[in-house]
């Protein structure tokens, strides 16, 4: 479904990504972790071409992201993305947030778009808030709306960039619950997150990044089960985040 082939990217002289390769099959859930600044956000943004890269290629559902002939808006509309800071459109009501792209990008009618959007809003448990504005919701609620907004485009895969790291601790679980449910329904997911509980529950694979490189890319069981076989850097990182 998503094939990342030897991606390298530079900001000027600074190399952010070095030869990153991995693949995410249909229905797989892959968790990406690693220290801050290791290039996780950059890599996940390369998948839907929000960040250009200088070398390598990414193939999403058979379509090359780097090919200049690729219709990027169309490709992006088929891949859902959830951001650390939610990024709901603050000038639009929740309903409008859910329906705008369905209408303008997919050409759905207003009725069809609302029906679809509100069904997903109901699924994330926020139907009663349809008429509100993003600023009137808590962080956890906003992030659930953001997930519903992405889902209402019928995505073939979902990208999550630290969806819970901007949340107050008591709101983390309400978002993770939605993500777990989504994973169990068979959604293809690439999740940058440090929620190792989430990784243990639903991930198929765990990728560990450091200094722009994919250092570990292995099955969840191996990643958590056989810690001694992991690289030193991964062990250090795990011991830090699993300390408490």
């Amino acid at each position: 479904m998503i094939e990342i082939n030897k991606i390298s990217k530079w900001y000027g002289d600074f190399q952010v990504l070095t030869d990153c390769s991995t693949r995410i099959n249909k229905g797989e859930v892959v968790v990406v972790c690693g220290p801050s600044g290791s290039g996780k956000s950059t890599l996940i943004k390369c998948v839907n071409a929000l960040e250009p890269f200088q070398q390598g290629d990414i193939i999403v559902d058979g379509i090359s992201v780097a090919d200049p002939k690729t219709n990027l808006p169309k490709l992006r509309s088929r891949v859902g993305m959830v951001f650390q800071h939610f990024e709901l459109f603050p000038h639009l009501s929740i309903t409008e947030n859910l329906t705008l792209a369905q209408m303008k990008v997919m050409g759905r009618s207003k009725e069809e778009a609302s029906q679809k959007g509100l069904a997903y809003l109901d699924r994330v448990g926020l139907k009663a808030h349809a008429h509100k504005f993003p600023g009137q919701l808590s962080g956890g609620q906003q992030q659930r709306v953001a997930i519903a907004r992405a889902l209402s485009m019928d995505p073939i895969a979902m990208l999550f960039d630290e969806p819970t790291s901007a949340l107050d601790p008591e709101m983390v679980n309400e978002v993770l619950d939605v993500m777990v449910e989504l994973a169990q329904e068979g959604m293809t997911m690439m999740c940058v997150t440090h929620e190792m509980g989430f990784a243990r529950r639903v991930a198929n694979r765990v990728i560990f990044m450091d200094k722009g490189q994919i250092v570990e890319d292995c099955a969840k069981e191996a990643f958590f089960g056989n810690v001694e076989a992991r690289s030193e850097r991964a062990q250090q990182f795990l011991s830090k985040i699993l300390q408490h």
């Binding site: 943004k45 839907n48 929000l50 808006p73 169309k74 992006r76 509309s77 088929r78 891949v79 859902g80 993305m81 951001f83 800071h85 990024e87 709901l88 459109f89 705008l100 792209a101 303008k104 990008v105 997919m106 907004r149 992405a150 485009m153």
Partner: peptide, 13 residues
């Protein structure tokens, strides 16, 4: 920038 990315990620030109 996050808003711009969010719009693009939804598939807006």
């Amino acid at each position: 920038k996050g808003q711009i990315n969010a719009g693009l990620a939804m598939g807006f030109t």
